[in-house]
Nucleic acid binder design. Structure first.
Lengths: 225, 225
DNA sequence: CAGAGTATTGGAATGATGTTCCAGTAAGTT
DNA sequence: AACTTACTGGAACATCATTCCAATACTCTG
């Protein structure tokens, strides 16, 4: 195949899958999810769109690969400790990753069965095994954790993006949500109204971890008589 | 405003926000998320794209409204029983809704702060209150449930869509995932490999409910000394 | 019931996107 | 030096959301 040629490769200036993905990540970080276009990418790499298609099959391939690069990098950076705190570390690592790079969130949730998903699943699954969870409950435990982690992180990312399109920072955004909720109809939305105050100055990260602990508690609980 | 005119209305044949949203839902159900275009919608309603813009501001407005219609409809159809089984009913209702109409999943996760989200949150929040969860733990409990429900449902929806683009039914898709996982590297992915068999014939709905029960158990557990 | 005014329509035009196509070029091979 | 292959870059295509505007159908006023 092209492998030998590519690594021996033309000039160092030449295009490659890695260089394109790297540039994509920069573009996604600086201009957001909509900022990634083949035209902008081609301009940044001083070439044409056609050249990019030689290395990368489609835009979804591009997004998927960029996402996987980030996830792999994040997971590799984690220290290994006890099972429960490793699970917390993986969870927080993904949360922070998506918080800092919101596009990773939508890429992760849009295309499943992905290598990235398996990476995370594997890391968490090993800890679940280490906790001694019986075989038939492992899938439920891992599934719940995965769904929670990806769910919260992506929702958080979507919030950030929504705030950004409205030109608000985190504080103003929460303020806006809080006032919107406090103006809801009292009879139809009593709970949302009562939460309006707590929303204003809650800590996403802390709440996220609280949820993880809730699930971990649920996983532990049946085996404590 | 136009309200009086619209209800007195031109002919019954005339366009209206409701008719457009209704047609959008039909289009989304029959042709998938990408099938909803202003052109296809205009053709179906025997008009031009410009006419639609008189009633609906943008495509995201259209998707949001269609989504909200479905969620409201689903929540209204639920019977009210005990707190815990109501939570299960809400969860299953949303799961099935997204399972049958995958586009609702991506619409829900893409645009947060939405009316739909508040509807679900309210419904669950009231049950959490009824369970006697102390004030300061309510947000964590509801947040965990919301994230889990939306997370799993959307992941499920994404799986369905992926399967559909590859022309596979549910069985063949799980089969494909199963064999893909079983071919992973033994040293790097022992857990995923061990799950490959269980994946093949698991029940999404049952696993989903198992996760809900896991979280409910976690919510209950600290208050049982 | 005529005419003015406004709500609504439908289709053409605009600008941006992902993707394809292909003529060209540079490296490696014989 | 020829020839093959890997790669490049830019033009071209189809499609999309959105905007614009002239034409229309309705309502209201006199």
């Amino acid at each position: 195949m092209a492998e030998r040629l590519r690594s021996a490769g033309r000039r160092e200036q030449s295009l490659s899958r890695e260089r394109i993905i790297e540039a994509s990540i920069e573009l996604l970080d600086s201009c957001g999810e909509d900022g990634l276009t083949y035209r902008a990418l081609a301009e940044r790499l001083a070439t044409g769109p056609g050249a990019l298609y030689w290395h990368i099959a489609s835009k979804s391939d591009l997004l998927t690969s960029a996402c996987d690069t980030m996830v792999a990098q994040t997971l590799n950076a984690l220290a290994v400790t006890t099972p429960e705190s490793t699970i917390r570390a993986v969870a927080l690592g993904i949360f922070d990753l998506i918080d800092e790079h919101p596009w990773v969130g939508s890429a992760l949730t849009r295309t499943p069965g992905l290598l990235s998903i398996v990476r995370i699943l594997e890391r968490i699954g090993q800890q679940i095994c280490a906790l001694g969870v019986p075989d038939e409950q492992q899938w439920a435990a891992v599934g719940a954790l995965m769904a929670y982690i990806l769910g919260v992180s992506s929702q958080n990312a979507a919030n950030r993006q929504l705030a950004r399109t409205q030109g608000l920072d985190r504080g103003s955004f929460l303020e806006a949500v809080s006032t919107a909720w406090s103006q809801l109809d009292t009879k139809q939305y009593p709970f949302a109204r009562s939460m309006a105050g707590q929303i204003r100055d809650h800590d996403d990260r802390a709440d996220f971890l609280a949820g993880i602990d809730l699930i971990l508690k649920g996983i532990r609980s049946p085996r404590q008589p």
